[in-house]
């Protein structure tokens, strides 16, 4: 605020050239977020197998009528591409984790690699939003492990996208306040869940 306009301009120019806007955040996010997503997808796969072996099996995350993996896992939406969705997660999040660890180890990845990662996280974020919609408004139940995947996929998409768009002037101000849109997104989903299942939550009070 106390800076003269000229100074803040050079500041921005410097930053635009500086390259990586999240030199520490992004590798750690990819590594930890990828691991969390991997754990969730792996657990869901194991639960799915248990459910296939014994249709009466109650998954560990079926806690009450709203938080209920069982009723989510048995829907057609849980096999959007003809096979259980978590299989995509097991493969995808393993890659994300590996990329994060490689970056932490000091790897410099070429642009085409970053664009490939961008394609992956973009697919992920679109798919996750479809699943959120289906879970809230079509199936009417929440699956805790799936929600871990939601919570991980969106920041992954967000920061990989900002990294790839870092050279755009318009991206600069967004990068400066990078956590704000993410916070808004989380609050929006929490609000949607709260409103959708209000009648249930209110019985718990």
């Amino acid at each position: 605020m106390q800076h003269s306009p000229a100074e803040s301009l050079t500041e921005e120019a410097e930053e635009a050239e500086a390259g990586d806007p999240f030199p520490r955040l992004l590798p750690w996010l990819l590594a930890i977020g990828g691991l969390a997503g991997l754990a969730a997808a792996f657990t869901l796969s194991v639960e799915k197998i248990a459910l296939l072996k014994d249709p009466a099996y109650v998954p560990s995350c079926s806690l009450n009528p709203v938080l209920s993996c069982g009723s989510v896992m048995n829907t057609p939406q849980a096999e959007a591409f003809g096979f259980p969705n978590p299989l995509l997660g097991v493969a995808g999040f393993a890659i994300v984790t590996t990329v994060g660890v490689a970056l932490l180890a000091g790897a410099a990845l070429p642009r085409w690699f970053w664009l490939g990662l961008q394609a992956g996280v973009t697919f992920g974020v679109v798919f996750v939003h479809w699943l959120i919609y289906q879970s809230l408004y079509v199936i009417g139940a929440l699956c805790p492990y799936c929600m871990v995947v939601w919570a991980v996929t969106v920041p992954l998409f967000w920061y990989v996208t900002l990294h790839n768009l870092r050279r755009l002037r318009t991206a600069q101000s967004v990068i400066e306040y990078h956590a704000v849109p993410l916070t808004l997104w989380f609050l929006a989903v929490i609000a949607a869940i709260g409103v959708r299942f209000w009648s249930y939550w209110s019985t718990l009070l």
Binding site: E176, Y177, H178, A179, V180, L182, T183, L184, L187
Partner: peptide, 8 residues
């Protein structure tokens, strides 16, 4: 960044 996020 933190201040704005926390205010939200």
């Amino acid at each position: 960044n933190l201040a704005v996020s926390l205010s939200v």
